[in-house]
């Protein structure tokens, strides 16, 4: 890909292509239609081109999640936008007791190819109910897949690859990533960093400051936090710690083997997530590593995450509550000590 394209453009273009190529696609959500084009403008232009399949709804998250599920059960491939990820609590019964259960509960006789897209994350001063990483509440839901692209992934391709599944998918976008230009290069790039990608349907990106040779530390992270970790590596280019970043786009289920592959050489693991610390993604990965890679560990696992507090509105407190570069750097120093 030569042309520079943003995270948001990538998703917008993918939605347009999906609508164009597949009549089963219906895009549903609040304030999606032109001229508004969605709260974050992700669906801009779509209703003008496809007026019958881009639907504005009332503010009724539970009902529209059910509506999209009903469409999916009857042969459509709905893409539902929930305006802020925080509002997934309003959809929880529909996702947990309905959409995610049907395929298995009805003995694999139905499919629910439902995609729920939603922006998550803080850093914009939106305060306690518009800044969270609510995906953590859904990590334990059987039947639900969770995808969370970073700017090192191709979110539009991931979105296309998420369509048509037998069970629903939660697609987590990050508000701070929307305007960012995607970094889709392979091989060596800036300041001695190199990058490679898995060939999976939902690719994992690996970034390294040692060309993946003899890493001292493995960092696993997803979404916007990968940007923070990569920036840290760039800033610390004269730092003498070899670091691999593992950045899956598929965050549930966890792909344990690719963590173990890096951990086998590094022996030290840091898990970085923007959600709150307790019972989070890091807790699950720590358990998996304790079960399957305990012998690789040279030091205790470190988790970097948000404090177990609501996310405050004012910048000073928000900065303190959310994880940042300094927290990651501190964790690196602690594990190599």
């Amino acid at each position: 890909m030569n042309k520079q394209i943003s995270y948001l453009q990538s998703i917008n273009t993918a939605l347009r292509e999906c609508l164009k190529n597949d009549e089963r696609i219906v895009v549903i959500g609040e304030d999606l239609r032109d001229p508004y084009g969605g709260a974050f403008k992700v669906t801009k232009g779509l209703s003008t081109q496809f007026p019958d399949r881009v639907l504005n709804t009332p503010i009724s998250e539970a009902s529209i999640t059910g509506l999209a599920t009903g469409l999916a059960l009857r042969g459509f491939r709905p893409i539902l936008e929930i305006m802020f990820g925080d509002f997934l609590t309003l959809c929880a019964d529909q996702i947990i007791n309905h959409a995610s259960k049907f395929h298995w509960m009805y003995n694999q006789q139905v499919e629910v190819p439902l995609l729920i897209r939603t922006p998550m994350g803080g850093g914009r001063g939106y305060g306690p109910t518009h800044s969270q990483c609510m995906e953590k509440l859904f990590f334990g839901v059987p039947g639900l897949k969770i995808i969370a692209p970073s700017i090192y992934h191709n979110p539009g391709e991931l979105l296309k690859n998420s369509l048509g599944a037998k069970e629903p998918t939660l697609f987590i976008e990050h508000k701070l990533s929307y305007p960012k230009i995607l970094k889709l290069k392979n091989g060596d790039y800036a300041k001695g960093l190199s990058v490679k990608r898995s060939s999976d349907r939902f690719e994992t990106v690996f970034i390294s400051n040692c060309n993946f040779k003899n890493p001292d530390v493995t960092i696993i992270s997803y979404g916007y936090m990968v940007e923070i970790a990569e920036e840290l590596l760039l800033e610390m280019s004269d730092f003498e710690v070899n670091i691999d970043i593992v950045a899956p786009s598929l965050i549930k289920p966890v792909l344990t083997q690719e963590i173990l592959n890096s951990l086998q050489s590094s022996g030290r693991l840091i898990i970085v997530e923007e959600g709150t610390l307790t019972n989070g993604w890091g807790a699950e990965i720590s358990s998996l590593v304790a079960e399957k890679g305990f012998n690789y560990l040279k030091s205790p696992i470190k988790r970097v995450a948000a404090l177990d507090l609501p996310i405050a509105n004012t910048k000073t407190l928000e900065d303190e509550i959310l994880p940042d570069k300094e927290n990651i750097k501190q964790a690196i120093l602690e594990v190599i000590e």
Binding site: A68, G70, L71, D93, H98
Partner: peptide, 17 residues
């Protein structure tokens, strides 16, 4: 399904389909 009212929006989606 077994949750009160939970199937009502899903029935709507089927009607729309």
């Amino acid at each position: 399904n077994g949750v009160q009212g939970g199937m009502v929006p899903i029935a709507n989606g089927m009607a729309l389909a």
